[in-house]
Design a protein around this nucleic acid. Sequence first.
DNA 1: ATGAAGCGGAGAACATGTCTCCACTAATTT
DNA 2: AAATTAGTGGAGACATGTTCTCCGCTTCAT
Lengths: 231, 231
Amino acid sequence: MNEDARCGAGQPDAECPERPLRRDAERNRQRILAAAAEVFTERGLDVSLDEVARHAGVGVGTVYRRFADKEELVETLFTGYVDDLAAVAERALDMPDPTEALLWFLEHWMEAVAGNIGLRQLLMFATYAGDRLSYARDRFAPLVNALVTRAQANGRIRADLAGTDIPFIAMMLSSAAEYAHQVRPEIWRRYLTLLIDGMFASRDGTATLPVAPLAITEMESVMRGRAPRRQ
Amino acid sequence: MNEDARCGAGQPDAECPERPLRRDAERNRQRILAAAAEVFTERGLDVSLDEVARHAGVGVGTVYRRFADKEELVETLFTGYVDDLAAVAERALDMPDPTEALLWFLEHWMEAVAGNIGLRQLLMFATYAGDRLSYARDRFAPLVNALVTRAQANGRIRADLAGTDIPFIAMMLSSAAEYAHQVRPEIWRRYLTLLIDGMFASRDGTATLPVAPLAITEMESVMRGRAPRRQ
DNA sequence: ATGAAGCGGAGAACATGTCTCCACTAATTT
DNA sequence: AAATTAGTGGAGACATGTTCTCCGCTTCAT
């Protein structure tokens, strides 16, 4: 994406004479990005850069020479995803059936976020996001409001559903998805379906729950898996 | 190491000649318990014992003289709650309407756990619980299964709901409740209602969502509030 | 008033993470 | 082949945070 940590990252710096990396350095940079993507996706943004370095097969020093700090690495990796999701919201607004549009958007949001713990933390928690990204998230609010209002006017979605219910539901589901990720990565779809069945104004019968429920032993594993920390 | 910690806490130990604490010591013990209850309830079990001590207005040394380690303190505080909730499940099985019984139990579970972050961590995550407590949690499985099966036989609850869906829903909701706790402690009721509307086999109209939705600014606060860590 | 019980809290021991420094290594140039 | 210099690894300085101990001093009970 950019050939040097500082150069090409954003600011067109006058002091930056477009010097290309040496071949081995560029290869290491790619390794670092690949390792970081894997490890942040799988285990979240709290993984240390020492671990990223080990995963990439390079020393920590190499990581810090290429990326000023963790935030720069994270932004390099994930900024694209945020834009992608905004585009999905805009495409949903062009769909003919407003109810389908809302549900389609919610499902895509969840698909993006459920399999990618780092992205979830970036989208859902301002702690990890710079102002740039929290601004990007603000962009969603009017789009989501429009999606909800239209789906309600359409008549199938309950009138008391609010715009903020959608991100809240996504947060709730993705939190659960994170807990269950090691055990059954797709289980969130079951509860999304349940919630959607709750979002209709009324209904006759049910949608089919799309994923088999957890076995009791699986539920145990989910609970044993991890514990949340605070701050 | 210290016989006081064990004596008087619960077990009638043969090595324990029933020596009562000095009056000031007993008063401090109560202060510690009160402070720990407050702070674990409000902020979860990860709060350090230094902080519990400060909250109680005593030195850390005093805490460690009274309780061998954190686990002992936590168990002293929370074991009762676990038994209480098991009793609620059993009472639900005696209720006349099976559907009401299931929903009543789920709501009580949530009420216990949503306002009490420490209890949630204890019930939901084996990390914090000794074998004793994870055994206690196992007791719930058959009770919950019975509640679900009966409510389905009754006809109002969808047939594809499984026993493990109930604890999973509780985990999911309480996780969301924890995120929103500082901002709107009761917001989980809104999403519980939504989920319950999804749990019926079919329905005409909707229940009224019991809590006003979050304003966009409140949603921001929830996201800014905290970020989860892993492992 | 005296001895035992109890106290506070500095700090040892440990864990975990970020980021720097510099003696080395190796790609590129000559 | 030698010289040049970008690039490297990883020990370790530094920061933060937690658990738990130690011991000089205080307070209670008799």
